[in-house]
């Protein structure tokens, strides 16, 4: 009886759309359990902080050395970029160039706490503590300071589900910051922890360490879900074969999905004007 009931639930919830009655009930149920989850998180917080402090002390020396090197390299990079940016702005003004949506200018930020961390070997999702009450909708992009986290895949009254970049169902158009090579970032079917940048032709000269960012394309009738120039990761390895017209590129995500405590949901500015 219970097995049949479970199968019925599974079938109905699988077949209905994300706005269907079962999903709505799930949204209300998730909101109802939210206070208990928040209390459990509050209780766990001092222990997590204690572990974090000890771990931080043990790794601080190595991390400090690494950070100093990185800082030096970023300072040089920043100087180069400032020159390039000034040049680009000047050229764009001359050409009346029109952009696709850009982060952070074209979005409002909703800072939210992570209620349930990413779990399991199959589905890479998190639950956050904001939903319709903060005007969050399905497909809204989610980021942190380090880069792209994922997109909203289900919304309840006060909670939402975020499908992470590391989930097998996720895909986003992306490009190599240095070469401009465009492709699609997705999770490989093999279940590896790294991402792959697909559909990049073999004539593109990519290198290990290249930054991969969202391309944020826009056409007259539709546009990418994600704003342009949000960091996704760095190329960790690549290979070319004679039989494949595309390069096999592996991308190490910049965001550590296992330790997300808070994220930023991006709400497009233009939606608030045209939305209900």
């Amino acid at each position: 009886m219970l097995v049949l009931l479970s199968l019925a639930l599974l079938t109905v919830s699988f077949r209905e759309s994300s706005n269907g009655p079962m999903h709505r009930v799930q949204g209300y149920g998730s909101s109802a359990t939210k206070p208990f989850q928040v209390v459990a998180d509050r209780v766990a917080q001092p222990f997590e902080d204690g572990y974090g402090w000890i771990h931080g002390m043990l790794t601080a020396k190595n991390e400090n050395k690494k950070m100093r090197q990185e800082l030096e390299s970023l300072r040089q990079q920043r100087a180069r970029q400032k020159n390039a940016e000034a040049e680009v702005t000047q050229l764009e003004t001359l050409l009346n160039y029109e952009h696709s949506s850009r982060f952070p200018h074209d979005y409002q930020k909703v800072n939210v706490e992570v209620m349930t961390p990413a779990t399991g070997a199959f589905e890479q999702t998190i639950v956050i503590t904001a939903g319709q009450n903060r005007d969050i909708r399905i497909d809204d992009p989610v980021v942190v300071g380090d880069g792209l986290v994922g997109r909203i895949s289900q919304v309840g009254p006060t909670t939402s589900k975020v499908t992470l970049v590391s989930d097998p169902s996720f895909a986003a158009s992306a490009r190599d910051l240095r070469t401009g090579a465009e492709g699609i970032v997705r999770h490989p079917a093999t279940g590896s922890d790294v991402l792959i940048l697909d559909n990049v032709k073999t004539d593109q000269r990519v290198r290990e360490g290249d930054s991969i960012i969202t391309s944020g394309w826009r056409r007259p009738d539709l546009s990418s879900l994600y704003p342009a120039q949000v960091s996704i990761g760095r190329i960790s390895s690549y290979s070319r074969t004679d039989v494949d017209p595309n390069i096999q590129i592996q991308v190490e995500p910049t965001v550590d999905f296992s330790s997300l405590e808070a994220v930023i949901v991006l709400i497009p500015n233009n939606r608030q004007v045209s939305g209900p």
Binding site: S6, L10, G29, S30, T119, K161
Partner: peptide, 22 residues
């Protein structure tokens, strides 16, 4: 207990309803 636990877990984490229960 398994059915109730699975249902509650799927609801609170926006999981595929019925999967954990089954």
């Amino acid at each position: 207990a398994g059915f109730a636990a699975g249902l509650l877990f799927d609801i609170s984490t926006f999981g595929q309803l019925g999967l954990t229960s089954l």
